Computed example of a mutant assay.
Amino acid sequence: MFDTKNALIVRNDLAPWQRLNVVAFLATGITSGAPEILGQPYVDSLGRQYGKLAGEPMRIFEADLAALQKAHGKGLERELTLTPYVEAMFATGHDAANREVFLAEDANNLNLVGLAIRGPKKAVDKVIKGLKLHP
Protein backbone atom coordinates (compact mmCIF):
# COMPACT_ATOMS: atom_id res chain seq x y z
CA MET A 1 0.00 0.00 0.00
CA PHE A 2 2.87 2.40 0.81
CA ASP A 3 6.15 2.73 -1.10
CA THR A 4 7.91 3.78 2.10
CA LYS A 5 8.27 2.10 5.47
CA ASN A 6 8.74 3.39 9.01
CA ALA A 7 10.45 1.17 11.55
CA LEU A 8 11.22 1.97 15.16
CA ILE A 9 13.69 -0.29 16.95
CA VAL A 10 13.92 -0.16 20.74
CA ARG A 11 16.51 -1.93 22.86
CA ASN A 12 15.10 -4.99 24.60
CA ASP A 13 16.77 -4.47 28.00
CA LEU A 14 15.08 -1.17 28.86
CA ALA A 15 12.48 -0.56 31.55
CA PRO A 16 8.93 -0.19 30.18
CA TRP A 17 8.86 3.59 30.81
CA GLN A 18 12.17 3.93 28.93
CA ARG A 19 10.87 1.93 25.96
CA LEU A 20 7.76 4.09 25.73
CA ASN A 21 9.81 7.28 26.05
CA VAL A 22 12.20 6.20 23.30
CA VAL A 23 9.36 5.19 20.97
CA ALA A 24 7.62 8.54 21.49
CA PHE A 25 10.77 10.49 20.67
CA LEU A 26 11.60 8.32 17.65
CA ALA A 27 8.08 8.80 16.26
CA THR A 28 8.62 12.56 16.35
CA GLY A 29 11.83 12.03 14.39
CA ILE A 30 9.93 10.17 11.69
CA THR A 31 7.24 12.83 11.37
CA SER A 32 9.65 15.76 11.46
CA GLY A 33 11.67 14.17 8.66
CA ALA A 34 8.58 13.36 6.61
CA PRO A 35 5.77 15.78 7.52
CA GLU A 36 3.87 14.64 4.43
CA ILE A 37 2.88 11.45 6.29
CA LEU A 38 0.64 13.46 8.62
CA GLY A 39 -3.05 13.23 7.83
CA GLN A 40 -5.69 15.87 8.34
CA PRO A 41 -6.83 17.01 11.79
CA TYR A 42 -9.47 14.87 13.45
CA VAL A 43 -12.89 16.47 13.95
CA ASP A 44 -15.48 15.09 16.36
CA SER A 45 -19.26 15.09 15.86
CA LEU A 46 -19.52 18.49 17.62
CA GLY A 47 -17.04 20.07 15.22
CA ARG A 48 -14.15 20.23 17.69
CA GLN A 49 -10.79 19.90 15.98
CA TYR A 50 -7.97 17.70 17.25
CA GLY A 51 -4.39 17.10 16.22
CA LYS A 52 -3.11 15.15 13.25
CA LEU A 53 -1.83 11.57 13.29
CA ALA A 54 0.54 9.86 10.90
CA GLY A 55 -1.29 8.29 7.99
CA GLU A 56 1.34 5.56 7.59
CA PRO A 57 2.01 2.75 10.04
CA MET A 58 5.08 2.77 12.27
CA ARG A 59 6.12 -0.76 13.14
CA ILE A 60 7.99 -1.22 16.39
CA PHE A 61 10.71 -3.83 16.75
CA GLU A 62 12.97 -4.83 19.61
CA ALA A 63 16.65 -5.72 19.51
CA ASP A 64 19.77 -5.93 21.61
CA LEU A 65 22.53 -3.34 21.31
CA ALA A 66 24.48 -5.34 18.72
CA ALA A 67 21.43 -5.67 16.45
CA LEU A 68 20.65 -1.96 16.85
CA GLN A 69 24.20 -1.06 15.86
CA LYS A 70 24.01 -3.43 12.88
CA ALA A 71 20.73 -1.86 11.73
CA HIS A 72 22.30 1.59 12.13
CA GLY A 73 25.22 0.61 9.92
CA LYS A 74 22.98 -0.90 7.26
CA GLY A 75 20.75 2.18 7.33
CA LEU A 76 23.76 4.43 6.79
CA GLU A 77 24.96 2.26 3.89
CA ARG A 78 21.55 2.51 2.23
CA GLU A 79 21.32 6.26 2.94
CA LEU A 80 17.98 5.93 4.74
CA THR A 81 16.58 8.56 7.08
CA LEU A 82 17.75 7.60 10.57
CA THR A 83 16.83 9.04 13.95
CA PRO A 84 18.99 7.68 16.78
CA TYR A 85 18.43 7.77 20.53
CA VAL A 86 21.44 6.98 22.74
CA GLU A 87 21.45 5.91 26.38
CA ALA A 88 23.11 9.14 27.58
CA MET A 89 19.99 11.04 26.52
CA PHE A 90 18.11 9.56 29.51
CA ALA A 91 20.26 11.74 31.79
CA THR A 92 19.54 15.04 30.03
CA GLY A 93 16.65 17.42 30.43
CA HIS A 94 16.40 19.26 27.12
CA ASP A 95 17.11 19.09 23.41
CA ALA A 96 20.41 21.00 23.42
CA ALA A 97 21.80 18.65 26.08
CA ASN A 98 20.63 15.67 24.03
CA ARG A 99 22.57 16.91 21.03
CA GLU A 100 25.66 17.49 23.21
CA VAL A 101 25.68 13.95 24.60
CA PHE A 102 25.00 12.53 21.15
CA LEU A 103 27.93 14.46 19.69
CA ALA A 104 30.16 13.08 22.46
CA GLU A 105 29.33 9.47 21.48
CA ASP A 106 31.76 7.31 19.50
CA ALA A 107 30.11 7.63 16.07
CA ASN A 108 31.28 4.13 15.10
CA ASN A 109 29.97 2.53 18.29
CA LEU A 110 26.84 4.41 19.37
CA ASN A 111 25.29 3.22 22.64
CA LEU A 112 21.87 3.06 21.01
CA VAL A 113 18.67 2.47 22.92
CA GLY A 114 16.50 3.23 19.91
CA LEU A 115 16.62 3.90 16.20
CA ALA A 116 13.94 5.11 13.79
CA ILE A 117 14.32 4.25 10.12
CA ARG A 118 12.38 5.61 7.16
CA GLY A 119 12.88 5.00 3.49
CA PRO A 120 11.87 2.89 0.54
CA LYS A 121 10.05 -0.23 1.77
CA LYS A 122 12.49 -2.77 0.29
CA ALA A 123 15.54 -0.97 1.68
CA VAL A 124 14.04 -0.70 5.18
CA ASP A 125 13.02 -4.37 5.05
CA LYS A 126 16.66 -5.32 4.40
CA VAL A 127 17.81 -3.26 7.38
CA ILE A 128 15.32 -4.77 9.84
CA LYS A 129 15.49 -8.33 8.49
CA GLY A 130 15.55 -10.81 11.36
CA LEU A 131 14.31 -8.38 14.03
CA LYS A 132 11.29 -9.33 16.13
CA LEU A 133 8.24 -7.12 16.47
CA HIS A 134 7.98 -5.59 19.92
CA PRO A 135 5.49 -7.59 22.00
Score class of each variant (00 low, 15 high):
Gln40Pro: 01
Asp106Lys: 15
Val101Lys: 03
Leu20Glu: 14
Leu76Arg: 15
Asn111Met: 08
Arg11Ile: 08
Glu62Val: 01
Glu36Cys: 07
Val127Lys: 02
Asn98Lys: 11
Asp64His: 07
Arg11Gly: 07
Asp13Thr: 12
Asp95Thr: 13
Thr28Phe: 12
Asp13Ala: 14
Leu38Asn: 09
Thr92Met: 08
Lys5Phe: 02
Leu46Ile: 02
Leu115Trp: 02
Leu14Ile: 10
Gly119Met: 01
Ala97Gln: 15
Ala34Leu: 10
Phe25Asn: 03
Asn21Gly: 02
Phe61His: 02
Thr81Gly: 03
Leu76Trp: 09
Leu80Pro: 11
Glu56Tyr: 04
Gly93Thr: 12
Ala63Gln: 04
Val22Asn: 04
Asn21His: 11
Gln18Cys: 04
Asp125Gln: 10
Gly75Leu: 05
Lys52Phe: 10
Asn98Tyr: 13
Gly47Glu: 01
Arg99Tyr: 13
Pro35Arg: 10
Pro16Cys: 04
Thr83Glu: 13
Ala107Arg: 12
Asn109Glu: 06
Met58Thr: 06
Lys52Ser: 04
Lys132Gly: 01
Asp95Glu: 12
Lys122Ser: 03
Ile117Tyr: 03
Ala63Leu: 09
Asn21Tyr: 11
Gln18His: 14
Pro120Asp: 07
Gly75Arg: 08
Ala116Lys: 02
Ala54Leu: 04
Gly93Cys: 02
Arg78Leu: 10
Asp44Thr: 07
Phe90Arg: 05
Pro84Ala: 14
Val86Gln: 06
Thr28Asn: 11
Asn109Cys: 13
Leu38Tyr: 11
Leu76Pro: 07
Leu80Trp: 15
Leu20Ala: 14
Lys129Val: 03
Tyr42Asn: 13
Thr81Trp: 07
Ala24Ile: 02
Asp125Asn: 06
Leu112Glu: 09
His134Leu: 13
Asp44Glu: 05
Ala27Ser: 15
Met1Gln: 00
Ala7Thr: 03
Leu76Ile: 14
His134Asp: 07
Asn12Met: 13
Asp106Val: 10
Asn109Pro: 03
Val86Gly: 10
Pro35Glu: 11
Leu20Tyr: 11
Lys70Arg: 15
Leu20Gln: 14
Gly75Gln: 08
Leu80Cys: 09
Asp64Ile: 14
His94Cys: 10
Ala88Phe: 08
Glu36Gly: 08
Gly47His: 06
Pro120Met: 08
Trp17Tyr: 15
Asn6Met: 05
Leu26Arg: 02
Ala24Gly: 04
Asn108Lys: 15
Pro16Lys: 08
Glu56Ile: 06
Val43Asn: 06
Glu79Ala: 06
Gly33Met: 08
Met58His: 12
Leu53Asp: 04
Ala96Leu: 12
Lys70Asn: 15
Ile117Pro: 00
Gly51Tyr: 08
Pro57Ile: 04
Glu87Phe: 10
Lys129Ile: 07
Ala107Ile: 11
